[in-house]
Design a protein around this nucleic acid. Sequence first.
DNA 1: CATAATGGACTGAATGATCACTCCGAAGAG
DNA 2: CTCTTCGGAGTGATCATTCAGTCCATTATG
Lengths: 190, 190
Amino acid sequence: MAKKETDKREAILQASLEIFAENGFHSSPTSEISRRASVGTGTIYRYFESKDALIEALYEEIDGRLRPVTSEGIDLEAPVRENVLGIIGRIFRFLLANPHEFKFLEQYYFSPYGVAKKSSDKESSDRPIINILHRGVEQQIIKDLPSEILFGLCFGPVVFLARDQLYGYFELSNEMVEAVLESCWDSIKL
Amino acid sequence: MAKKETDKREAILQASLEIFAENGFHSSPTSEISRRASVGTGTIYRYFESKDALIEALYEEIDGRLRPVTSEGIDLEAPVRENVLGIIGRIFRFLLANPHEFKFLEQYYFSPYGVAKKSSDKESSDRPIINILHRGVEQQIIKDLPSEILFGLCFGPVVFLARDQLYGYFELSNEMVEAVLESCWDSIKL
DNA sequence: CATAATGGACTGAATGATCACTCCGAAGAG
DNA sequence: CTCTTCGGAGTGATCATTCAGTCCATTATG
């Protein structure tokens, strides 16, 4: 029974991820979500207080899946460069491989939800990438710029190009992904 | 009379720019737009066929204002580096100085409107920046990568950081703007 | 065992709110 | 007085959310 309940919750999350990614939050009626999840419309409200709460829960879900992608494979003994390229690369590949998640996150960060979230997130400073960048600056391998800027130089191109690829504007070969990562490094290295 | 008609059209465009930037397309009722523009709701439909048409017209407007910012001051005799930094820098500063326009454009490019637009835009290849980048590649000053990627490397950080600044996450000093531009160049130069 | 009663997960039609858009009378120009 | 431009209440459509009732697994009763 507990199993079945979980199933419905999962089905609703999965269905809304797909539909939000395809149509946007505002063009995704709860009726369509419930249809794709094969549950009654009212059932959504047994698991989530409101559509907003569903969106927040979905964000937490995806963020939870992205976090390990960021941290896995970090080796503080290894050179800064390797660590930086590793992290950016894993995120880049994750975004390219998970279009629904990418589109959802983009929408989320742009919306009032994401703005509120980011403002309240002081934890952002303990993200592994920030630490690694700091170490690079200390070792005089990376430019001495505020971490927000270094962060933007790394992830700006990644997000920009992931979007181009996912909307079908062009194709990113594996080789090109590598070239982009190298270029990001060139932009922050001393 | 023609003057006054123009005034109302302008008022509607200006009001919707502000409201769209603040609330997003979907949370900007025509009633609120008309109120801020000090016209009747029906008047909007005298100047624009639909809300969608209004959004498209607004995009054309802003695109028209952005285009000269891109092209002005291009000097084909000058070094590629100067031209590239000049173009990116002018766009960066334009976005920072015009938050409403920036937020509108971001929303637009994410929405079905923008996706449709970009797909049909084969003119993108004659944007001045693309030509300059080509020249750089030919002169073996810039990496030999597809122009989409070079473009992404330049504008990814600019868009990413402009957003951070406009949502108040941190402050970009003039000095920092320069540092970002230099870094973008570092990422594409050979 | 068989049968009945209970509780709570589930459903989807009904509700009320919000909008885009229309339409017709009013206001203004000539 | 005619013809154009406005205004904003009204209309119909679309949604998020609710709730009265269904269904079924579990437990109680004989």
